Simulated assay, not measured.
Amino acid sequence: MVKFDTLSIVVPVYNEARTVHQILDLLRELQLPNGIGKEIILVDDCSTDDSAAAINAYAARHPSLGLRLLTHPVNRGKGAALRTGLRAATGDYVIVQDADLEYDPEEYNLLIKPVLKGFADVVFGSRFMGGNPHRILFFWHSIGNYWLTVFSNMTTDLNLTDMETCYKLFRRDIIQGLDLKENRFGFEPEVTAKVARVPGVRIYEVGISYYGRTYAEGKKIGWRDGFRALYCIVKYGLLKL
């Protein structure tokens, strides 16, 4: 059994004032196994709503949670926000959590399990395997995710089912040792390609739930990001830049 003390949770935030308190409630109530502590780092990517004020108000109401809020003076994109949060992490392991309500933090325990058993250094949470709930939404998004994962696998020689998932758990020294560059949603294929090249890395995948949002509910990723992801697969996976 592997022991670790703290899980760093990095939350990129952009215009999530309406829902950020809900994800913070879930993180506050979350109980991790074996007494593992939580370090919660939020990165506000120059939101144009009251996201930062909502986070500060929540932190004032719950000082024992020890929330850390980092801010960008200009909007730089999700990947840039993640780099800021990942650099600031001090826990033994790090996980990415979107500020929306598409993923359930209770399922961190599913990702942690192969780590605690001594099998994994990196764990992906797949929306497309296992028997967990999965909201039925966009056909072409699912096709796009499938083919992006296939193309990514062809360049990395991994057999992932969901490269584009938000839930990725990393040993901190591994993720902080990567030279990440993508500022937007290209983060997913870039980090997958680069972590796959870490000597001796052990990557696992577990099934998770997915409570997807519509665009009316605040979903931000679009078809242009799909083309950027394909470009990143070629750049970082095939060309190994």
Rank of each mutant, 00 (worst) to 15 (best):
K78G: 00
A89S: 15
V74P: 08
A81T: 10
S64Q: 14
S64P: 03
G85N: 08
G66E: 02
L69S: 07
L82K: 10
V94C: 03
G85H: 10
A53H: 12
V74I: 12
R83S: 02
L67R: 07
A89F: 03
L67H: 09
R61L: 11
L86D: 00
L82N: 11
R76T: 07
A52Y: 13
T71P: 04
R83W: 03
H62R: 15
G79D: 03
R87A: 13
P73Y: 09
R68H: 08
L86M: 09
G85L: 07
Y58I: 11
Y93P: 04
L67E: 05
L65M: 13
R83E: 01
R68G: 00
T84Y: 02
L65Y: 03
P63F: 04
V94E: 00
R76F: 00
R83P: 02
A54C: 13
H62G: 09
T84V: 13
R83V: 02
G77D: 08
L86T: 06
D92W: 00
G91N: 11
N75T: 10
A60E: 14
I95N: 01
S64A: 14
A81G: 14
A80N: 09
G79I: 00
A60T: 11
A81P: 09
I55F: 13
P63C: 04
R61Y: 03
A60H: 06
R61I: 05
P63Y: 07
P73L: 03
N75E: 14
G77W: 00
Y93H: 13
A88F: 06
L82G: 05
G91C: 04
H72M: 12
A53R: 15
A80P: 05
L67S: 04
V74A: 13
T84D: 15
R76E: 12
A88D: 13
R87Q: 15
G85A: 12
G85P: 04
P63I: 05
A52K: 15
A54Y: 06
R87C: 05
P63T: 05
R76H: 07
D92K: 04
A53N: 15
G85S: 08
I55M: 12
A57Y: 04
G66Q: 07
G79H: 03
T84W: 07
G85W: 09
L65I: 10
T84P: 02
A52D: 12
G79K: 01
D92A: 12
S64I: 04
A53C: 05
L67D: 01
A88R: 14
V74C: 03
A60L: 10
A80Y: 08
A88K: 11
A80W: 07
A54E: 14
P63K: 07
H72V: 09
G66V: 02
G66T: 04
R87D: 13
Y58G: 06
G79P: 08
A88P: 12
V74S: 14
L86P: 01
N56H: 14
P73W: 08
K78I: 06
